[in-house]
Design a protein around this nucleic acid. Structure first.
Length: 856
RNA sequence: GCGGACGUGGCGAAAUGGUAGACGCAGCAGACUUAAAAUCUGCUAUCCAAUAUGGGUGUGCCGGUUCGAGUCCGGCCGUCCGCACCA
């Protein structure tokens, strides 16, 4: 084969990318009459280089976007940058650069990388969240929410690094110490801004039912996250009251979802931050130390659940509400959270594992109050009993089922006025303050005069937006550059005109990604979005991204959409109609174990020569260990660079690889052999074009059937995002074409094949279409081929004959035969007769066009 | 700890409760070629039989439902993912 007959992606890719751009092929028209389709992939963080995982994500969205165009939709398929965040500040410190220039340079590089993949994106709508045109509008939205009462300020604790003088993210706290300084991390209380997401708890939960096209697991994760539970809130009277700054404390309010176990209580536990604990700690150094220890511990759910349960006996006694003579010890415990419920619980060791662990440690009684029949006398060992059963050892509740007992206790509490039913949520309000530079400045001015007067926090007037981040900052000294800036924070109070201070905290970057899909749809200069235009495009018809965003990003975006609807800026309920979470791209690792117990050294794929059986290091020709196929990561060096792959194989082969083999929700193992196979297939597709010949009229019914089946199947597979299946069907069609004899039908099948693969390998498809198409259109604008239903069924089918469910024989026949005909054809089989051997036939099951099962 | 997902050839996988392994990769054999690359053809779960035709086994393990289970149910085992300041 000569070079001239090969597909050359280096020429074709650039040619078509330029053509599409010059002709604005993928610009979305707000005024279009066609049905709309909004296809969105989660926008990337500009970390520096496009990762192969991005390529997979955007290729999937691109196939769908191109397919939707071909099926007559006006498609909005935009791209932008989630450009604020910590990595830019880290880079600024490490590389002595500025977060802005680092980020913008990354965007430039990554945009160029994305463009090389030929995605059908409307680049005219590109946004970067770090630009004032974007975050200024976000400030306006923040103020709108503020004015609607959905934003408030409260004290909240953060991880504080005393050496770097900075707040640390959870992930920057390693074994209780700052990742950079190594200094022990402290908890520090700061006054911070919160968004009232809990105002929408019920609605966010109920709305999940309508998200039929979301993965069940994501809906479940959100449901658990919101964590609605109902139970009894009541108080224990304290035997002796405790003095505090706010007067005497004489009771402890607790919440429980299991009031039926109230007679199994053996202690009361309160959080270290509980007002009662705080008051006691003032006069008790040991308790004070214990509370400090609690605060030093991690706050993530995983850490709380797995850490050793520890308590401190306050010496106080709580009186059981159903028996005032019954006294329970009151502990401060590290596993009770001030943020959830009332910050206090009663412990029922027999029926809660955490309580049981705690009771064993502090020698507290364990009384079984729920039992399955026959288990009444079985002692609780090391495992709490959380199953169904009947109430025992519980006075007036004895003999009741759990549910009846709960109702009975609640009735008692309400009639005797010591408690009431209560719905509690796990969901907490969203703390959005970040003590960092590289984020959206919070548009608030603090007016606090030295004499104690002042207006307090004041919203920046809208005509002063955007509040632009100052560029003249440095990162060579610890602390937040916005706080140190000589002039930026010094402003006059918009309300009274006296000297005041600008808020130096910035917004959580999740705020930036909570409304970007609205700004993509509409981006006027003078407001966040145009309501009418947004409502034309929204909701996003298909959203695609990683499972790591299953909870926070998706919940926050759902919240912002509701909040904006609540203040009547928008009439959209759910932002994302369908959600798809794609798998990661993985790669095997190459390593060598050094002598001793040192960590192994990893090698990158381009330092390795891989054969089917083993791998050798290029530099010394000796073998390396081939490790498991795992998520690509820099530390394991098992990364591949999309640019290098495109240089070598072109965009279409890379795109084809991203879609082949693995189902899109599952991990995709990258391999050199795999991409080479895709490259060969791209060339094989290209050669189909040269099979186009004379329009000789010799009908090829088998090929036509295959063609119509492929049109139906590939379309359905793309609609279902089952790209691997669509790819398999295209392979099968191409094979059938190659085996067919020349005919007008074959020419037609070849043209159809290019149509079907156009969303996946668009450059090759355009290049081929420019030669063999009808000349009226580029393939990106062509109409998806239609299929003839009557052409989908086979002329001849195979019927399986089973005896007691085991396949014993087969015969072929025409489709559509009656059950009786199939049964007699099956019974006529010699093999079948031999096996039956005169035995009585109990039953014959006939599945039309499929099988006959004879039960003897 | 809690929650979730997944487990099928050497590998990625396919299979409305109805012929397990489509399609691809790797491999083997052959054709073409001075040769290589590229391309094409055939084979490729496993055991027995060893020639086509044949027979048995097989979807992580144990059990259940069913005429029939990779698929549904229960219980194990294993792997992976998420868990509020990473984005």
């Amino acid at each position: 084969m000569t070079e001239a007959t090969r597909f050359n992606p280096h020429i074709a890719d650039a040619r078509w990318q330029e053509y599409w751009e010059n002709n604005k092929t993928f610009h979305a028209d707000d005024e279009s009459e066609k049905p709309k389709s909004y296809i969105l992939e989660m926008f990337p963080y500009p970390s520096g280089r496009i990762h192969i995982g991005h390529v997979r994500n955007y290729t999937m969205g691109d196939v769908l976007a191109r397919y939707k165009r071909m099926t007559g939709h006006e498609v909005l398929h935009p791209m932008g940058w989630d450009a604020f965040g910590m990595p830019a500040e880290n880079a600024a410190m490490e590389k002595k650069t500025h977060p802005g220039s680092w980020t913008r340079e990354n965007i430039t590089n990554m945009r160029a990388q994305l463009k090389r993949l030929g995605f059908a994106l409307d680049w005219s709508r590109e946004i970067a969240t770090c630009e004032p045109e974007y975050y200024g509008q976000e400030q306006a939205l923040f103020l709108a929410l503020y004015k609607a009462g959905l934003v408030y300020r409260k004290e909240s604790s953060v991880n504080w690094d005393p050496v770097d003088m900075t707040v640390l993210a959870n992930e920057q706290v390693i074994d209780g110490c700052g990742w950079r300084s190594g200094a022990p991390v402290e908890k520090r209380k700061l006054s911070q801004w919160f968004l009232k997401i809990t105002e929408f708890s019920d609605d966010l939960l109920d709305g999940l039912d309508d998200l039929k096209n979301w993965p069940d697991k994501v809906r479940l994760m959100q449901e658990n996250w919101i964590g609605k539970s109902s139970g009894l809130q009541f108080h224990f009277d304290l035997e002796n009251s405790v003095n505090s700054d706010d007067g005497a404390i004489d009771k402890v309010e607790v919440f429980s979802t299991r009031p039926d176990t109230i007679f199994g209580a053996s202690f009361v536990a309160i959080a270290a931050d509980h007002p009662l604990a705080q008051s006691l700690a003032k006069d008790n150094q040991q308790l004070s130390d214990f509370c400090d220890d609690c605060r030093k511990m991690g706050t993530t759910a995983a850490e709380l659940e797995t850490m050793e349960k520890k308590g401190f006996d306050t010496g106080l006694s709580a009186l059981h509400p159903l028996d005032p003579t019954w006294k329970l010890p009151v502990f401060v415990a590290n596993f009770v959270l001030m943020d959830y419920g009332t910050g206090a619980v009663f412990g029922v060791p027999a029926h809660d594992q955490r309580d049981l662990d705690f009771a064993r440690k502090y020698m507290l009684p364990v009384t079984r109050v729920v039992a399955k029949a026959g288990d009444e006398e079985t002692p609780i060992a090391n495992e709490a009993f959380t199953g169904e059963g009947t109430i025992i050892n519980s006075r007036f509740l004895d003999g009741m089922e759990i549910e009846a007992a709960q109702k009975s206790v609640i009735d008692h509490a309400e009639s005797e006025n010591w408690g009431k039913t209560q719905v509690t949520w796990r969901l907490r309000d969203w703390g959005v303050s970040r003590q960092r530079y590289w984020g959206t400045p919070i548009p608030i001015i603090h007016c606090n005069q030295e004499d104690g007067s002042g207006c307090g926090p004041v919203a920046v007037p809208n005509d002063q937006l955007p509040i632009v981040l100052p560029e003249d900052v440095g990162f060579d000294v610890p602390g937040n550059p916005l706080e140190r800036h000589p002039t930026w924070s010094k402003v006059d109070c918009p309300s009274c005109g006296k000297a005041a201070r600008r808020e130096t905290d910035t917004l959580d970057t999740f705020a930036d990604s909570s409304w970007y899909f609205l700004r993509f749809a509409s981006q006027p200069a003078d407001k966040p979005f145009d309501r009418g235009v947004v409502e034309k495009w929204m909701p996003v018809d298909q959203y695609i991204g990683g499972i790591e965003h299953a909870i926070l990003h998706l919940l926050y975006a759902r919240f912002w959409t509701r909040a904006l609807a609540h203040i009547d800026m928008l009439d959209v309920k759910e932002p994302f109609e369908s959600l798809f979470t794609q798998g990661m791209v993985t790669h095997e690792t190459y390593s060598r174990q050094a002598d001793g117990d040192a960590k192994p050294t990893f090698f990158s794929p381009d330092e390795i020569t891989r054969t089917s059986s083993d791998a050798t290091l290029n530099s010394d020709g000796k073998a390396v260990d081939v490790g498991r196929v795992i998520k690509m990561s820099k530390s394991k060096k098992n990364v591949v660079d999309p640019d290098e792959i495109i240089d070598q194989y072109g965009a279409d082969a890379v795109r084809w690889f991203m879609l082949s083999d693995s189902p899109p929700e599952r991990d995709l193992p990258w391999s050199e052999a795999g991409i080479e196979g895709c490259w060969r297939f791209v060339q094989r597709l290209w050669r189909l074009k040269s099979l186009i010949g004379d329009e000789t009229d010799s009908p090829d019914k088998d090929l036509m059937r295959k063609m119509h089946q492929s049109i139906a199947g590939v379309g359905e597979d793309i609609e279902n995002l089952a790209f691997n299946k669509a790819v398999a069907k295209i392979y099968a069609l191409v094979s059938a074409i190659e085996k067919a004899k020349p005919s007008a039908d074959r020419n037609s099948a070849i043209r159809t094949a290019f149509m079907l693969c156009a969303p996946m390998v668009p450059h090759l498809a355009e290049e081929a279409w420019s030669e063999i198409g009808d000349g009226s259109n580029i393939i990106a604008n062509a109409a998806w081929p239609t299929f003839d239903k009557t052409m989908l069924t086979e002329d001849e089918i195979t019927i399986v004959v089973q005896i007691k469910g085991k396949v014993k024989d087969k015969f072929t026949t025409v489709p559509g035969r009656s059950k009786e005909e199939l049964e007699s054809l099956a019974l006529a089989s010699k093999k079948v007769q031999n096996i039956i051997d005169g035995a009585p036939i109990h039953k014959v099951i006939v599945v039309p066009d499929r099988l006959v099962n004879i039960v003897i």
